[in-house]
């Protein structure tokens, strides 16, 4: 049955397309041409080892959620399939679902009129737990999540972070070997984010040896948590490796990070320049073998743009992402 016991998740050539909005509402109308399709997932191959914490990193719209939904049998791929803990998601979706715990984004995925405990009791029954088993499991989960005091209150009275803790508890209710966590820290306060990240890494991955796919668009989160990262862009995986090896793909050792008010033209300085802007401040990351050599050039080229700060840093996964996908390249045509 289990052909590759060391692999908990194997995806083979997964393609998932959607129709652009407003087309052929009730399945009638002219035939759909390929350019009217969105290739949300465009031929993804993936293997995740047992016990691995695997990151799917990519910007909004990269196709992370769609891929996770395909793996969890919520969506039917147009092409390809996946094997989860030895079960084919297309031939035996029920067996695959038995092995998966999943958190999909959004706060509305729980019953707001029911208490945290009642929510978990309901899902426990769907996963086949007897009521004694469910009680034991729920008490344990509520305890490690620090929700014991609030477990009899309705979800509508919970904060976003508490709801996310209940969602994660629900994913764990049947103690599945595989977890699919879609943006688990999205929109959370820093203290909740910190708790959830450390829970995923220390408890779920290191102690309980769960196989985890975690999607995120936070570069730091992927960097800190994941054993391996797949960088995803426009439905494709453009690179898979450990964070260290990925960062080494950028040949330079040093990055000069320059924060400016307004725009400056740093093209031609150093090896390459990446720009991004946050709340009116433009951040240039200039890669060079030795940043000291380029300092004076940078100050000259800044002209009218007011330099707020300069920092010497190491390449980050963000630089790797830009390097691989070509998105947001150089000062002028920075897409913000």
């Amino acid at each position: 049955m289990d052909l590759a016991p060391e692999h908990a998740i194997i995806a083979k050539g997964v393609v998932k397309t959607f129709r652009k909005k407003g087309r052929r509402k009730y399945g009638i109308g002219p035939k759909i041409t390929p350019d009217e399709l969105i290739y949300a997932v465009n031929g993804v191959d993936l293997t995740v080892r047992r016990g691995e914490l695997f990151g799917l990193l990519g910007p909004n719209g990269a196709g992370k959620t769609t891929l996770v939904k395909c793996l969890s049998t919520l969506l039917l791929p147009n092409k390809g399939t996946a094997i989860i803990s030895g079960h084919d998601i297309i031939n035996d979706p029920i067996a695959a679902r038995e092995c998966i715990g999943i958190t999909t984004g959004g706060e509305r995925t729980l019953y707001w009129k029911l208490s945290g405990r009642d929510n978990l009791r309901y899902f426990a029954a769907l996963y086949g737990l007897s009521s004694e088993e469910a009680d034991r499991r729920i008490s344990y989960l509520m305890k490690i999540m620090g929700l014991e005091d609030r477990q009899y209150e309705r979800i509508e009275k919970y904060s976003t972070g508490m709801r996310q803790k209940v969602s994660i508890s629900r994913a764990l209710i049947h103690d599945p070997p595989v977890l699919l966590l879609d943006e688990p820290t999205l929109g959370l306060d820093p203290s909740f984010s910190r708790f959830i990240r450390s829970f995923i890494k220390k408890d779920l991955n290191q102690k309980q040896k769960k196989t985890i796919i975690l999607t995120t668009h936070y570069m730091d989160e992927a960097d800190q948590l994941c054993d391996r990262i797949a960088i995803m862009n426009e439905g494709k995986i453009v690179a898979v490796d450990t964070p260290e090896v990925l960062k080494r793909r950028i040949p330079q050792d040093e990055v000069l990070e320059v924060r400016c008010l307004g725009h400056a033209d740093f093209s031609g300085i150093g090896q390459r320049v990446y720009a991004d802007s946050v709340e009116g401040v433009t951040i240039y990351r200039i890669h060079a073998e030795n940043v000291e050599d380029i300092m004076s050039q940078v100050i000259q080229a800044a002209h009218s743009a007011k330099i707020l700060s300069m920092n010497v840093t190491k390449p980050t996964l963000e630089d790797v992402f830009i390097h691989l996908t070509g998105a947001r390249l150089t000062g002028e045509d920075n897409e913000q």
Partner: peptide, 14 residues
Amino acid sequence: WYGTLESIFVAPVP
């Protein structure tokens, strides 16, 4: 309407 449809559809029951 509740937003819970996907949550229940990932459970291993038809």
